[in-house]
């Protein structure tokens, strides 16, 4: 509006307007017989410009007075897209990190036999190591041999066994999946939860390769300034075994409530594949090919790792109750839109 008025004054102003100056400078100095038609044309042009200016000004005025005006402070209107589940989003992110490191996705069933879930992973029957994984078992299994009994897998590790029985080394797999335990639900435990497992088997795989891989993955997931720390731990199917902590992403290691003032957050378990696991795999492979020697522990080594997706998503988003993940509560999901 102000621009239109400035334009009018600049070109059409009675005293200093450009057209006035032009007409004075040219028309009055031109040949007499040409002055009249030129003068008419000149006035027509001037009139046209004035009409356009007036209509623009009117339209602008109308809009400003509200007839066609939108209240742009009202909320935007669009049919909202659906919201990806924060847990599955985190799981997909973790899997993508390992895809970039050369790991292919492998999946396995949620109902497993005791052999794949425990025995082949060096949890012997009636061993105290089984106490750490309270298991949901299927009905009517008692008549079967122990290794054939069906249960809900307590971890994604049986997919390690399935993959090695199916394929000779080298192996690089990442295994996302749902697992179940006979645990009471509370703010940080759920009988249903998700894990991402990884397995790397090849010639000359070392503990330092395991360290480097997980350090790289944690930096990819949580930012390049994150540090990792490895602790000796125990899992029947790895040796050496380790728990991995990352420097607290909330306080950068200074200590806060989220890391219980330690500066570190525990995120995953890992280790070098125990030779007993390779032996179980070889035993199963030899049922198909008696000469199979692909998993001879003198020739190959490997590492495996596993992480709870819920825990990582809870850390990433500051979620305090694991139950939100399985409620379908729109108020919870909408925060992740």
């Amino acid at each position: 509006m102000r621009d239109a008025e400035a334009f009018r004054l600049r070109w059409l102003g009675r005293k200093q307007g450009r057209l006035k100056l032009i007409s004075e400078a040219w028309l009055k100095s031109g040949p007499t017989d040409a002055r009249k038609p030129l003068g008419i044309r000149f006035n027509q042009l001037k009139q046209q410009i004035e009409e356009v200016l007036t209509s623009v000004s009117l339209r602008i005025q109308k809009v400003l007075e509200g007839e066609e005006r939108v209240d742009i402070t009202l909320p935007g209107g669009v049919r909202a897209p659906g919201i990806p589940h924060p847990l599955l989003k985190t799981m997909n992110e973790i899997v993508a990190v390992f895809h970039h490191l050369g790991y292919s996705t492998a999946l396995g069933p949620q109902v497993e036999s005791d052999f794949y879930n425990f025995e082949a992973l060096n949890f012997p029957p009636n061993h105290p190591a089984r106490d750490t994984q309270d298991t949901l078992v299927l009905a009517d299994q008692q008549a079967k041999p122990s290794r054939d009994r069906l249960l809900m897998r307590t971890h994604t590790s049986p997919v390690q066994i399935r993959s090695m029985i199916a394929c000779a080394p080298p192996i690089r797999i990442v295994v996302p999946g749902k697992v179940h335990r006979n645990d009471a639900a509370d703010a940080t435990h759920s009988p249903v939860f998700h894990q991402v497992e990884g397995l790397c088997v090849d010639t000359n795989i070392t503990f330092s390769d395991l360290k480097g891989t997980l350090d790289h993955a944690m930096k990819a997931l949580f930012g390049s300034s994150v540090k990792t720390r490895f602790f000796p731990s125990f899992f029947p199917f790895t040796e050496p075994s380790a728990d991995v902590q990352i420097s607290c992403i909330f306080c950068s290691g200074a200590g806060c409530r989220k890391c219980k003032q330690s500066g570190w957050i525990e995120l995953l378990g890992c280790g070098m594949v125990d030779p007993t696991v390779f032996a179980s795999v070889t035993e199963a492979r030899r049922k198909l090919n008696p000469a199979d020697d692909a998993y001879n522990p003198a020739k190959i080594t490997g590492f495996a790792f596993g992480m709870g997706v819920e825990r990582i998503a809870m850390v990433q988003h500051g979620i305090s109750d694991i139950g939100h993940f399985y409620s379908g509560d729109m108020r919870f999901l909408e925060q992740f839109a």
Partner: peptide, 10 residues
Amino acid sequence: FANTLPTALP
């Protein structure tokens, strides 16, 4: 121990 990386596979 050092942080090293194994070779990647396709």
